[in-house]
């Protein structure tokens, strides 16, 4: 199946949407890992953004540039955290996770495409286990963190 080697990964760097907005204004790239239907309903705007759905991430992670700051984002910050760690596993050192995700981005009034009302559906889709989950707070099937700096 795989000759993957286990690597010790440092704690991922996380930024709130406000900090992310500042970094994006300074040239960082936003990678949205939500699925296409979610992105079509409501998307990040006003910044340089590419979409690589988590379901395709193992095949397309090499599309992410290594030579600029990259912020990964999703609905609540759980799927994008997984993608962040995966890029760290692949040797990326300029990646960070946006936590929370687009829900807080919308709350802050930052630019979007589509409808803000679609955020709730995107949050509901924020699971990595096809809905057969028993959520744990620290796992990728968990819900959004209760609070953050912004």
């Amino acid at each position: 199946m795989s000759e993957a080697v286990r690597k010790d990964l440092a704690e991922a760097r996380e930024v709130c949407p406000t900090t992310a907005q500042r970094l994006l204004s300074g040239g960082a790239l936003l990678v949205d890992v939500r699925e296409a239907t979610e992105v079509a309903a409501v998307g990040f705007a006003g910044c340089d953004v590419v979409t690589i759905p988590l379901s395709q991430f193992e095949d397309r992670w090499q599309d992410v540039p290594r030579d600029r700051d990259v912020i990964l984002a999703c609905a609540v910050g759980e799927r994008s955290l997984k993608a962040t760690y995966f890029l760290m596993y692949q040797g990326y050192d300029r990646v960070m996770n946006m936590n929370p995700g687009i829900a807080r981005w919308v709350q802050r009034g930052f630019p979007i495409s589509g409808s803000a009302e679609a955020v709730a559906a995107s949050e509901a889709a924020s699971s990595c286990c096809g809905g057969a989950s028993e959520p744990k707070a620290s796992a990728c099937c968990g819900g959004a963190p209760a609070s953050s700096c912004c």
Binding site: Y89, S138, A139
Partner: peptide, 23 residues
């Protein structure tokens, strides 16, 4: 079950099984 530990094996899709250090 910890996400960081899971991805430390280079795994994105779960469940995954590691035997003798190999996925």
């Amino acid at each position: 079950e910890d996400m960081r530990q899971i991805v430390s094996f280079g795994v994105m899709t779960t469940p995954a099984v590691v035997v003798g250090g190999k996925v």
